[in-house]
Nucleic acid binder design. Structure first.
Length: 229
DNA sequence: GCGACAG
DNA sequence: ATCTTGTCGC
């Protein structure tokens, strides 16, 4: 559960890019994923007129999709939002929350891209390498790549391609609903990743992991901002 | 120069 | 991400 790397996270943009390139040298391999009892979901919500943020990690039981544990932390923004350097903004608070998790997950679903990234190393890949756990990148919109609209039926998908390389899948999780962008994070194949996302999205467009994490951070942030006034 | 650009 | 009301539909 401990991160294999320990950075200061007080990085310049250039430092961030260099670190990202170092970490991306790690090899992504497929795990069996046969014994996944718990799946984690993560999300961060930001305050508008302050540098405060709320980060959360939720743990769902894989078989029932029931919420079994959640950790919420308050933190401060220490890195700006820059497309391609998203990890450096969200990982510090997420690590802070992960440190308090008592139920270790065997899979993490991230709110953002994994391999579908300019350097093939988005948030999901980054988190996967840090924890050495299987991770899936699951974004609501694309960062880059070209694709054809998948068929209208739930479960349909089409490849997300960048410079001739398949970097992810555009997956329809509900009939006639806007598809989401799935990509390999770490230690998982794209096919297995899509299967998991479908399993985690029995009713809504987004997987339960990100939905639960999302509603949690937004609720806590709302309470936090209410107390400020 | 113009458009794109995870959250 | 965040600012925001109602509205169409199952």
């Amino acid at each position: 559960m401990e991160p294999v790397l320990n950075h200061s996270w007080k990085l310049s943009e250039m430092d961030a890019v260099n670190l990202q390139q170092e970490l991306s040298l790690k090899i992504v391999k497929e795990d069996q994923l046969t014994k996944v009892s718990y799946v984690a979901g993560v999300d961060v919500a930001y305050s508008e007129h302050s540098d405060k943020l709320i980060a959360a990690v939720v743990i769902l039981e894989a078989s029932s999709l029931r919420l079994v544990e959640s950790v919420v932390v308050e933190d401060t923004v220490h890195f700006p939002y820059i497309p391609g350097l998203f990890s450096f903004r969200e990982i510090p608070p997420l690590l802070k929350a992960f440190k308090q998790i008592k139920t270790p997950p065997q899979l993490i679903v991230c709110d953002g891209q994994g391999m579908a990234h300019p350097r093939r190393f988005g948030l999901a890949s980054h988190l996967g390498v840090l924890f050495d756990l299987p991770t899936i990148g699951c974004g609501k919109t694309k960062l880059l790549g070209e694709f054809q609209d998948p068929e209208i039926k739930r479960g349909s998908s089409s490849p997300l391609v960048d410079h001739g390389e398949v970097i992810g899948a555009v997956l329809r999780t509900q009939d006639n609903v806007k598809p989401i962008f799935v990509s390999i994070g770490h230690r998982i194949s794209l096919t297995t990743a899509c299967e998991w996302i479908l399993k985690l999205s029995p009713k809504y467009r987004l997987p339960e992991t990100t939905r639960q994490a999302d509603q949690l951070v937004n609720k806590v942030l709302a309470d936090f901002q209410r107390d400020q006034e």
